[in-house]
């Protein structure tokens, strides 16, 4: 039977694996190395015999605890390959010039979590990866990408200022974001959405922040209620400044509308 997780949520409850993951783990623990190896060959997530990454994390940790190097060296590369595929697909930001190095760094740091897992008994960092692997790995990846972008931003020129006085702007371009946050884009709008996201990531950081807080996360720009959190209170500036930043975004993104 799969070992109970030790990590607790903010409410003090223990993290638990989904039932189907528990069942898969129990089944895998009974397999010989040969049969496990055969099962690891299945790379199609739609196959019923496919081993979810949550199970792989469990089995790797189990092999580490038991000193089973054969199993460890069998399973860990499979999980790392899956992670690499995710990183190749998801790290597309054009500001990052050396994507391969960043991917490699993230993979190394991730593999390091397993090495330190046995060493650091107080913090079960990997428990969450046994519950919802993709979400946990996303959080892990985003942190590393963010750090890299911070480093790059330190070397970037300050953005030029924009004069909006004579420009007539509409909300259409940014409303696409609000819409996409509510409903996943259809096939026709996938390419446009991809372009839009790429452009948004290239906006000056304070502009990108205002756009995302307003149009994706959904904060109001300002409020009469002094206790309400708004884009202006989060960014620590006036609502006028926020409006200017949003106008800047619309100006910089306007060319995308020509293709729609």
């Amino acid at each position: 039977m799969a070992r109970i997780l030790t990590k607790v949520t903010e409410d003090g409850d223990l993290y638990t694996r989904p039932r189907q993951i528990e069942l898969k783990i129990d089944a895998m623990l009974k397999l010989t190395d040969k049969k496990l190896s055969n099962q690891l060959d299945i790379g199609d997530p739609k196959s019923t015999a496919f081993l979810p990454s949550e199970c792989l994390v469990y089995l790797i940790r189990d092999a580490l605890r038991n000193g089973d190097n054969t199993k460890l060296n069998l399973i860990l590369p499979v999980l790392l390959l899956r992670c690499e595929r995710i990183l190749i697909r998801k790290i597309q930001d054009q500001r990052i010039t050396d994507k391969a190095s960043l991917r490699e760094d993230i993979l190394c740091e991730f593999s390091g979590l397993f090495a330190s897992d046995m060493n650091d008994k107080k913090v079960s960092k990997l428990d969450i990866f046994e519950c919802r692997f993709n979400k946990a790995f996303k959080a892990f990846r985003l942190d590393k990408v963010e750090k890299e972008l911070n480093r790059i931003n330190n070397f970037m020129d300050l953005p030029q200022s924009y004069n909006h006085d004579n420009k007539e702007l509409d909300d259409d371009i940014l409303q696409h974001l609000s819409q996409a946050a509510k409903v996943p884009p259809n096939q026709e709008s996938v390419l446009f959405m991809k372009d839009l996201l790429n452009e948004i990531k290239r906006l000056p950081p304070d502009v990108m922040k205002a756009v995302t807080l307003r149009y994706v996360i959904g904060f109001q720009i300002e409020s009469n209620d002094p206790d309400e959190t708004t884009v202006a209170t989060i960014c620590g500036c006036s609502s006028r400044t926020i409006r200017n930043r949003l106008k800047t975004a619309k100006t910089l993104l306007a060319h995308l509308m020509e293709d729609v």
């Binding site: 790379g43 997530p45 899956r82 996303k138 963010e146 946050a181 884009p185 994706v216």
Partner: peptide, 24 residues
């Protein structure tokens, strides 16, 4: 972090796990 998470979630390529031919 929420901003990163939100923009990442909008990526139309999504988080769908892809099939890996040579999984080892």
């Amino acid at each position: 972090f929420a901003i990163s998470l939100a923009l990442d979630a909008l990526d139309p390529m999504g988080d769908v796990e892809e099939s890996i031919k040579d999984s080892k």
